[in-house]
Design a protein around this nucleic acid. Sequence first.
DNA 1: TTCATTTTGGTCAAAGAAAGTCAAAATTCA
DNA 2: TGAATTTTGACTTTCTTTGACCAAAATGAA
Lengths: 149, 149
Amino acid sequence: MGISDLIAGFIQEALEDSDGVLELQRSDLAQRFNCVPSQINYVMSTRFSPEQGYIVESRRGGGGYIRITRVRVDRETLLMHVINSLGDTLDLPSARAIARNLVDNGAISLEAGRTLLSAVSDAALRAAPRESRGAIRADVFKQVLIHLV
Amino acid sequence: MGISDLIAGFIQEALEDSDGVLELQRSDLAQRFNCVPSQINYVMSTRFSPEQGYIVESRRGGGGYIRITRVRVDRETLLMHVINSLGDTLDLPSARAIARNLVDNGAISLEAGRTLLSAVSDAALRAAPRESRGAIRADVFKQVLIHLV
DNA sequence: TTCATTTTGGTCAAAGAAAGTCAAAATTCA
DNA sequence: TGAATTTTGACTTTCTTTGACCAAAATGAA
């Protein structure tokens, strides 16, 4: 088991203790594990991505930090299910139906649903070439859901 | 957390207490926080800009002051203002800043803000050709805001 | 009044402090 | 072995802190 796994484990434990949110300093952590700072970025992107149920925010400069938030799992499963069922391309009527469903199920708020739909509307994607619109619509839709988890 | 954040926090509290307007002296504040006076200017420009809902006026010379006023515009006006200020293209950092602001101002919910940002993320627009990404991002952003008004 | 002095605040650029990116090198795994 | 994953480090970007120098308003003396 490599260092990346150790670091990931450490973070996950710390997340338990701190009830889902954790703020740390990249260089601190790097020192603790005797690795280069950029390895922390690697761990973040491979083990704490939104797809895996985490939101990672950060800030540079003096007093900088990396904040990791673990998102709740209830909705996660439902949303992930929907996300995984989505193909590479998506048309507007389907998008509407799915969004409607998620709102009805209480998985996302009405406001979020509306936001989602306007983000994939034809007006929003008018600058995108016709032939890739479906793909972009699918990507946007997925990204939104992933981040809403 | 750095000094700038401390100062900003202090000012915000004071603004609460004084119901939206606050008059202070640059050198006083600098002394209180043990920093150089120009740091106060830094805090003003990075944390109390008009985009963030504040008006900062000042006067030099004897009895000089810095006056900070928090402005509260209603949500519709604010949203329209933001929409109109958007150009034909939009980069991700700007999108983030604007969304953050709207959330902070209570113009849109945190959930809507997150949704908006994930809809214009690079991941969401990866199928779009590089050169039109900025344009699509701007369109999506606008559409979402328009529908939220 | 006029002008010099004092009292404030303003600007800007350099230095410092984190974090981010990217690709090469090393390692592990199938 | 060959592909995928991990580890490293040089270089970049962003944000903060500091200080030298600048500009304006008030005040008081001539």
